[in-house]
Design a protein around this nucleic acid. Structure first.
Lengths: 251, 251
DNA sequence: CGCCAATTCCCGTTGAACGGGAATCAATCT
DNA sequence: AGATTGATTCCCGTTCAACGGGAATTGGCG
């Protein structure tokens, strides 16, 4: 028999299992995983056992499952994300210290904004993004910057799909969004008041490497705060990071 | 046929493939991977293709392979490491700002010290550790702290195995190491001058959760610097992190 | 004890994975 | 231009590891 369910490979199935874990669901029983991944119970148990043996999953004291440290370790190695994060971190710290607000780094992944890093500030306004969290491209300042500089085909795809509102200020009209993206390209930054939460405004600038935009650097400000100082700090940091990336290439 | 090589499962084989990537080897051809993982060429290509389809590996412009962002994303979710890192990061930043030296966070994984986080300071002395890097337990201040508080069986295993010198000051004598570990338990910190590089001294303190040591927090100082200020800063940070972990449990 | 869910064990079936080998493509050298 | 080396793709017969249904077992919990 072997894999009668559908024409998918083992790796895909493993990813499905890993995807049953989430920011909100970090430990589960084998049966839960099986149910969520759509696997027969006995199959789920066998597969989970194998993943534990391989170090991809770990069992805690109660024999419940969580993602293994080994997976994290493997993922860190050599990922492009890591290099970018390493180059960006010191500059992000400076921005965070200066602004006293959350500072974030995001990249485009599978038509969404994926947050690579987030330095939170205890006194700053609330903000839902997390490391390894995702947001739709049209619903955050970082996403807007990424979308504005993305491949035109992707941009049209997003503009043509329904634009879900995340916060009260999310731009959900395709025509307005298209105009906004043009403006972001022209001015070199995005401001998204209330696009996620009513109380906050995101400000983001693009980060370039070899000419093309590879990430967005952003800060989360209180709704009514002036954006000029944040923008200056972010731009300065972006320039520093870009210089770092250029220098790193010269090794 | 199916997997004639040996009695290992698919997951183990996939991990072997992922392990061929390293900090120093982040992109490879499919054939390279196959050779290093001990797979026949055609098998390697098929497997790699599947991993790319699953998003675990990515192809760059030249069709060479690198670890995928999706893997990183999955790994971040829900790992214990992430929670610890998140709790520790702000305190580490404070230590780094105060000492102006590298600050690191390490845990015990498979009989080695695995570095979860590292804040580097541009003006500080060189230091070879990296995020997701590993060092033998006896060869770094962090490792010594972890070893001193590790399960006695593991400790004996390490003491009984050959102790490779990494730097000029690495303790390689089992008897001396045993005495040193006792002292670390007594004093509550480890100082390791030159254990990795001649020019630097590592200072590390344990990080406890529910009574047992789960990680080590360390700083890298110039060889002749006084360790007292660093020790004070590290201890203060450790206390703060431990309080944070306790508070997080109350949710 | 009775109930429910998780887990483990058993086992007959079978097709997906395997890998040897040859062909193709792409650089690089002579 | 022809030869060489290595990566990649394609083909295909073999086969056994994976599969999953089902039953038995464990373990809380009221």
């Amino acid at each position: 028999m072997a894999n009668s369910a559908s024409g998918e490979g083992v790796a895909e199935r493993i990813v499905r299992v890993l995807e049953t874990f989430g920011v909100d669901r970090t430990v589960q029983t084998a049966s839960e995983i099986g149910r969520r991944a759509g696997l027969p119970s006995s199959t789920a148990h066998r597969l989970v056992d194998e993943l534990v043996r391989a170090g991809i999953l770990e069992r805690d004291d109660e024999r419940r499952l969580r993602l293994g440290l080994r997976l994290w370790e493997l993922a860190q190695r050599g990922s492009t994300a890591l290099r970018l994060r390493q180059a960006a971190l010191p500059h992000m710290e400076r921005v965070q210290a200066e602004l006293r607000e959350h500072t974030q780094l995001a990249v485009l992944e599978r038509e969404e904004a994926l947050f690579l890093e987030r330095l939170s500030h205890p006194e700053a306004v609330s903000n839902i993004t997390r490391v390894a969290g995702r947001l739709p491209l049209h619903a955050s300042s970082s996403g807007l910057v990424l979308l504005a500089h993305a491949d035109p085909a992707l941009r049209e795809r997003v503009l043509g799909s329904p634009l879900r509102a995340v916060g009260p200020g999310t731009v959900t009209d395709a025509r307005a969004l298209r105009r906004l993206l043009g403006e972001i390209r022209r001015t070199g930054f995005a401001a998204a008041p209330g696009s996620i939460e009513a109380v906050s405004t995101g400000v983001a600038v693009p980060l370039r490497d070899r000419g093309s935009v590879i990430a967005a650097l952003s800060a989360v400000l209180p709704r009514d705060a002036p954006i000029a100082p944040a923008l200056r700090a972010l731009r300065e940091a972006a320039a520093g990071i870009e210089a770092g990336l250029r220098a790193a290439r010269e090794d």
